[in-house]
């Protein structure tokens, strides 16, 4: 058995003095797809943000390691350069910074961290064009400001496009499915599926089972009260869909 890519053990996290994660355990190995499901307020987004290094979260206990390194000691950009990608639930609009500029800067930051030279212009262009085609995005999007004036669906699609260009080792997608119509959901799922590989892992944070019709997870976890209370295969998601969170929560409590 290969060693875990991500190992979270007994993680406790507070925001503004209120404990949101109350001892969370999660192990993700290379090539695996994990779905984290749970009701609103269960701590799903907190988990995604803490793993990406957002400020304002106080780790009060437990640990998280990535490739054997203390993840929590790394700055957000160090995590990104080490291959972690966060797909935002609410992607930020950054007028005046074009998508290609952001991607080139991000790629080169990664390359510099690995001691590689900057990507050549032609290779870069080819890469972003290929990936834009994969995400069925018009090339004009590349020159536009990051998420500037994008619809909700376009923003999510842009997140997956960025992920496709940056080719992370661990992608954490925070409610990427929310606010998507069925066509956009298929495009997003197709983007994720095309990136699945034996080396790349995904953590899909989602409220609904719908996404999992298109991206088949290896594991489904139910997050409630800041902890993972049940883990199963994709049939657990169907169970949640049929019975709702209440039933699963009640069963776990009894």
């Amino acid at each position: 058995m290969n060693s875990p890519l991500l190992q979270v053990a007994g993680l406790r996290v507070a925001v503004g003095g209120k404990e949101i994660l109350t001892g969370l355990d999660l192990t993700v190995r290379a090539g695996e797809v994990h779905a984290i499901m749970g009701p609103n307020g269960s701590g799903k987004s907190t988990l995604a943000h803490v793993l990406a290094g957002r400020e304002g979260y106080e780790v009060t206990g437990g640990s998280a390691s990535y490739r054997g390194q203390d993840l929590l000691a790394m700055a957000p950009e160090e995590r990104a350069r080490a291959g972690i990608f966060l797909g935002f639930q609410y992607p930020i609009e950054i007028p005046g910074v074009s998508n290609v500029y952001l991607l080139r800067s991000a790629l080169n930051a990664r390359r510099a961290a690995r001691g590689e030279s900057e990507i050549d212009a032609a290779g870069f262009l080819r890469l972003v064009r290929d990936k834009a085609r994969l995400m069925q995005m018009d090339e004009s999007f590349l020159q536009r400001g990051v998420n500037e004036g994008f619809s909700g669906g376009e923003k999510k699609r842009n997140e997956i496009f960025q992920m496709a260009v940056l080719e992370p080792t661990l992608a954490i997608l925070d409610e990427t499915d929310s606010g998507l119509d069925i066509d956009a959901l298929k495009v997003v799922a197709n983007g994720v599926n095309s990136l699945r590989s034996a080396e790349r892992s995904f953590v899909l944070v989602t409220h609904y089972q719908r996404l999992l019709d298109y991206i088949r997870p290896d594991f489904v976890h139910v997050l409630a009260g800041g902890r993972i209370i049940r883990t199963g295969d994709r049939t657990l998601a169907l169970e949640l869909e049929a019975g709702g969170y209440d039933q699963v929560l009640a069963a776990a409590a009894s």
Partner: peptide, 18 residues
């Protein structure tokens, strides 16, 4: 916006400058 750029790998100084 700063966090967004850092989460993509830009260091804080570069993110601020951008």
């Amino acid at each position: 916006a700063l966090f967004y750029l850092r989460s993509r790998g830009l260091d804080p100084a570069a993110a601020r400058q951008v």
